[in-house]
Design a protein around this nucleic acid. Structure first.
Lengths: 285, 285
DNA sequence: AGATACCATCGATAAAAGCGATAGATCATG
DNA sequence: CATGATCTATCGCTTTTATCGATGGTATCT
């Protein structure tokens, strides 16, 4: 069972083609390098270097095993790097809970930036809306959430408005009766089925609004609207990107409206440095 | 600098969720496991396990580093596996020299079989014809070659006929004057430009046959023939696969003809076990 | 309460990793 | 051809480290 140090010595000697050079670079004595490689050859049962020349040259087997040894070292290097990050307080993974109100193109740019800055940290994205999302944050399952601004937040949750607001509008299928009208009043909406967001959490039992249908994500709501089952309030970007051809906005007064997206986190379980970076990156300029 | 053994102990303990269990499986004392993990935590600067419960449970950092540690171990496992293969006489890489006379679909099947049987061994394919190919074998650059049967082989080279022969025929471009004839005699070919194989090696200076053009591979010859520059003797499979729409065979008596493909290797530098397997696989049933 | 199984800690011992010194080998140079 | 420089292999010696058994504290189950 070869030790990591022996592999490092082997690689250094192979790369520089000299035991003495490797000893100098690794700040070890030449005898250590020599003995270490000799032991490694015994352990592996293969001659790594051809020592007939003045300087040792890799054998064919040595060349082949060099690649494997380097893989071991790079894997170990990643381990140490990750440990160093964790030791200095960085979280091993960051879970963010997303509402569909947040545009994915902005999110992708953000993810790319995050990956460049924190390549070691796992990033997990969860999809949830409203109370479900807040529950993810409260339970610690996610550290950061992006939600449409709520009328009130549970205690222990902190929030800050994200930099850019999001546009919402009311849509119906092109085949829906409302789609033909050139003028629609808000009161008329009650005559048709509403498609509303629901949540798995039902701590605050919502007043059941007539014969409405509901789903836990805007994407499912949009698919219901595309089916012609009713009208729904949806993020404009979602419709423009995935449902433009089969949906139509309603000409309501005051719509589309701009919705503030809040960044939410738990005060008890605050996000780590990477989460803080992501949060300030969202709320800042 | 964590040792491999420490990582193995860590992984074993993490997987089974118990230090004692890991000690039993690794045939070490419980104190060794305990101390080893404690040292690992000191080295990495991170708490790996939460010891408040009866059984230790991984911390978040521990979960994250567990994945890294497993990567180190699998890399080391590959290293040991490769070394074991080399120690028992297997070559680190096998270079085979191919003539275009050998059908690639059979070759791909063979490569798949080789990969399944010898996943550790690098397989290198070189393209060469005739004297060039034999030179690759003689020099030791390649260990195995597939060539159209030669009238004579250099001393020191052994050969055996491959199981399946290969068909060759004479082709011209559809725009070539010969393409219109319903009957062609061999002697008439001399009236038109021949496209012949040439080799980089010019040890045996071939008699320059009139105003012929030449190239070192059948693929290049075929492209010349497609350009309408003359007639060429080509492997049937090559034309059928890549040049069927622009080339046409000549109705010559005795053609197409079957050519034996020989497997060639050097008697001085015989191929290793994997090469022998490949060779017998080719010549056998 | 008792039995059991778990983890942490403490010396003691054996294995190894490391170093300096030395000797043999190879290459460049006068 | 002789010489100096530089390389690798090997030999003791010291120091570090890994491993063990024994012991004690603690949680879990009967």
């Amino acid at each position: 069972m070869p030790s990591i140090e022996a592999l490092r010595i082997f690689v250094e000697a192979a790369v520089h083609g000299s035991f003495s050079e490797a000893a100098r670079r690794l700040h070890k004595s030449q005898s250590t390098v020599s003995a270490s490689i000799a032991n490694l050859e015994i352990d592996l049962g293969v001659a790594l270097f051809d020592r007939h020349a003045r300087l040792p040259v890799l054998t064919g087997a040595g060349q082949h095993l060099l690649a494997n040894a380097e893989q071991v070292l790079t894997a170990q290097d990643r381990l140490l790097r990750a440990a160093a990050g964790l030791a200095s307080g960085y979280e091993p993974r960051l879970s963010i809970a997303l509402s569909d109100t947040y545009q994915p193109d902005r999110l992708e740019a953000l993810q790319a930036e995050f990956d460049a800055r924190y390549p070691e940290i796992e990033l997990e994205c969860l999809i949830a809306e409203c109370a479900d999302l807040l529950a993810l944050i409260e339970s610690g399952r996610a550290q950061l959430g992006f939600v449409e601004r709520q009328p009130d937040y549970p205690p222990g949750l902190a929030y800050a408005p994200a930099a850019e607001p999001s546009a919402m509008d009311v849509y119906v299928s092109r085949r829906h009766p409302l789609a033909q009208r050139s003028h629609v009043e808000l009161a008329q909406l009650d005559d048709y089925r509403a498609l509303r967001l629901t949540t798995v959490q039902q701590q605050t039992p919502q007043r059941p609004r007539g014969h409405s249908w509901s789903a836990p994500s805007y994407l499912m709501l949009m698919e219901m609207a595309q089916g012609g089952f009713g009208w729904a309030e949806l993020p404009c970007w979602l419709v423009e990107r995935y449902g433009a051809e089969s949906l139509q906005r309603l000409p309501l007064a005051g719509w589309p409206r701009l919705v503030t997206v809040d960044v939410v986190w738990s005060r008890d379980r605050p996000p780590g440095p990477a989460g803080v970076w992501l949060q300030t990156r969202m709320t800042g300029p």
